[in-house]
């Protein structure tokens, strides 16, 4: 890991976001839906509508939140469509974790960008050009190998990202990252196990997994682009410069690919660009139309 932001624990007067304030759900009957309703959201308590100039890194955090949000939306499409029931549950779980990461960040972003927007304002009311996620997460659901290739890369990236961000100079960001880090390590484990099983499984699964690694390739460089917002946030020791994550992420993926008896493809003739600037690929419009249409059909309604 290279140049993560230095931890500077200040603002001790605020509630620590790493310690949940509600009681933990205990007992055998603690269902997923029960936990989902009680889970505290780290950023939620912080939305106090502060001075927008003081923390000028909202755009950087929006990129991170939008990546998590859009990937959660795609993973949610797997429920009832997975190869086995256990996998419906596992992919649903990962979707829930990512959704939680986005929900942890949106209200905080609203408090530092001067708009005071809440999570649903960001998720439901923004048009395509206002979204800052990379193209990788918005691509349509492919076969199971495609999903495992995407999840392997994205979770390896998130492990490195959140390792860096847990030392962020912004306590809220560090808190969200600290919680996310535990989650994304499981996501990486899950994807790694499947990539190895598929690569070293049958002839067909090997062929499909290799093809998926090729298909995902053009969408990877974007994860490591140092856009303006990242440079600013990294300079303030709040964010991590994406390019510095590259080697560690590739090393993580390469280990898994090797164990899976697969080959890491060399490179692609083209690469995606522009997600962090609000330039998206074709599937993004339909994804937003589906995600937002109920909320937008009822302006001002609460649910």
């Amino acid at each position: 890991m290279s140049t993560p932001a230095t931890p500077t624990p200040t603002d001790t007067g605020t509630t620590s976001v790493t310690e949940p304030v509600t009681e933990p759900v205990t007992g055998a009957a603690a269902s997923a839906s029960e936990s989902a309703q009680r889970e505290p959201l780290p950023g939620a308590a912080e939305n106090t509508g502060g001075d927008p100039g003081a923390k000028p890194y909202g755009a950087y955090l929006l990129g991170l939140a939008d990546d998590a949000m859009v990937y959660a939306q795609r993973l949610g499409e797997w429920m009832t469509n997975a190869p086995q029931i256990e996998e419906d549950m596992a992919l649903g779980n990962i979707a829930l974790d990512l959704l939680g990461q986005a929900r942890g960040l949106y209200p905080y972003i609203g408090s530092i960008d001067g708009t005071g927007r809440g999570e649903d304002d960001y998720a439901m009311q923004r048009d395509e050009r206002e979204w800052r996620n990379v193209h990788l997460v918005e691509q349509e659901r492919g076969d199971f190998a495609d999903e495992m290739a995407r999840l392997l890369w994205f979770s390896a990236y998130q492990v490195e990202l959140h390792t860096g961000l847990s030392g962020s100079g912004d306590d809220v960001v560090a808190g969200v990252a600290g919680k996310a880090l535990k989650e994304v390590r499981y996501h990486l484990d899950h994807a790694s196990l499947w990539v190895v099983r598929l690569g070293d499984g049958t002839g067909e699964s090997h062929r499909r997994m290799q093809a998926a690694l090729e298909r995902v390739l053009p969408h990877l460089p974007e994860l490591f682009d140092d856009d303006e917002a990242s440079v600013l946030a990294a300079g303030l020791e709040v964010g991590v410069l994406p390019s510095t994550l590259h080697d560690a992420v590739v090393a993580r993926v390469a280990r898994v690919v090797e164990q899976a008896t697969l080959r890491l493809p060399d490179g692609s003739r083209w690469r995606s660009r522009g997600g962090r600037a609000g330039i998206h690929s074709r599937p993004m419009g339909s994804l937003l139309a589906e995600m937002q249409h109920i909320a937008r059909s009822h302006p001002g309604a609460t649910w």
Binding site: E34, G76, G92, L96, L99, M124, E290, A295, W303
Partner: peptide, 19 residues
């Protein structure tokens, strides 16, 4: 799941289907 009108509703619905 893909159309739930708020993020809170989406989270609860995913968890419910998971249950």
């Amino acid at each position: 799941i893909t159309r739930a009108p708020s993020l809170r509703r989406k989270a609860i619905l995913i968890a419910k289907v998971q249950d």
